[in-house]
Write a protein that binds this DNA or RNA. Structure first.
Lengths: 124, 124
DNA sequence: ATAAGTGTACTAAGACAATTAATACAGTTG
DNA sequence: CAACTGTATTAATTGTCTTAGTACACTTAT
C-alpha cells in the first residue's frame, strides 16, 4: 500500500503521513475504514512503530483520521474529508498563484498556462 | 535583502536558496547583476560563509546563477531566467493539477476553483 | 608586484532531529 | 484471560546542518 523512498531526504514519518493522506483523499481508504494498526504497518514497512505512531498523530492533528486506544485508527467522516480536501487544495492553489503574480505573470499569463496544463492532464 | 526565519525547521542554506531564487524571479536582482559575495552575505546574515556557498552552488546547479572564482556570482541571462521561471512554474502547476485529478476533482471543478483563486489574487 | 577580494575545498567539532529499541500503561475485543 | 489497540517514556544511534579554521586558485585595483 505504501512504498518508502530512502533516497528522499524528508523524514520517514513525513513520507508516511503524506502518502496516507493521498490514499485517503483518493478514496483508496474510505471514510470510517480502519487503518492498519501501528504495529502491523510498522512490520509491513520494516520501520519502528513509533514512526508510524507519529505519522498517525500528525494525520489526527490535521483531522484526516481519528485514533482510539484499544480500537484502532480510522479515516474521518466523508464530510470532514471532503472539506479538508477542498480547503487544503485551495490553500496550495492560492500559494502557487500568488507566487506566479509575485514573479510577474499577468492574470492572462496564468490563465493560459493553467488552461494548457488542465488540458494536458485531463486529455480534453 | 533577506531575512532568515529560525522558527522554520528547514535548513538555512535552503532558505537562502529559495529567497534568492524568488528575488531573481521577481527581477529584484536583474540578469548579469553581481550577487553579494559569499563572505559579505554571510556577515550580513550572521551565518557561516560555507552555508552561503552551499546556497550559491545549489542555485548554480539549477541554472539561476553562475559563479566565477576571483570575480563573483552573477544572475543568469534574461533568457535563461525566463525559461527557468516558466518551466519551474509549469512543473509545479502540473504537479498540483495532477494531484487534483487523482483526488477526484473534475476538469470543471479545477477550472472553477482556479478561476476563483485567480480573481482573488488579482482583484479583478 | 602587492594587497584585497572572489569562489571553492577540506577537516574537525558541536548541535539537533530522526529513528530505533525496549518497556510500560490504558483501553477494547473475543 | 489473552491478544490486540494507541500512547508514552527513556536511552542510544545515526545523519545532516552548521560553524570555525585553514588553504588554494583566480581576479581586480592600487
Amino acid at each position: 500500500m505504501i512504498i518508502l523512498d530512502y533516497k528522499d531526504k524528508r523524514p520517514i514519518f513525513e513520507q508516511v503521513t503524506e502518502k496516507l493522506k493521498k490514499l485517503i483523499c483518493k478514496g483508496v481508504i474510505p471514510s470510517d475504514e480502519k487503518l492498519p494498526s501501528v504495529r502491523n504497518l510498522a512490520v509491513e514497512l520494516s520501520i519502528n512503530p513509533n514512526t508510524i505512531s507519529r505519522a498517525y498523530q500528525q494525520l489526527e492533528s490535521e483531522g484526516y483520521i481519528y485514533s482510539v486506544i484499544g480500537k484502532g485508527s480510522f479515516v474521518a467522516s466523508a464530510e470532514d474529508i471532503k472539506r479538508l480536501k477542498s480547503t487544503d487544495y485551495k490553500k496550495e492553489l492560492l500559494s502557487l498563484i500568488a507566487d506566479g503574480k509575485a514573479q510577474g505573470f499577468s492574470s492572462d499569463d496564468i490563465k493560459t498556462l493553467i488552461n494548457e496544463t488542465v488540458k494536458e492532464v485531463y486529455n480534453d
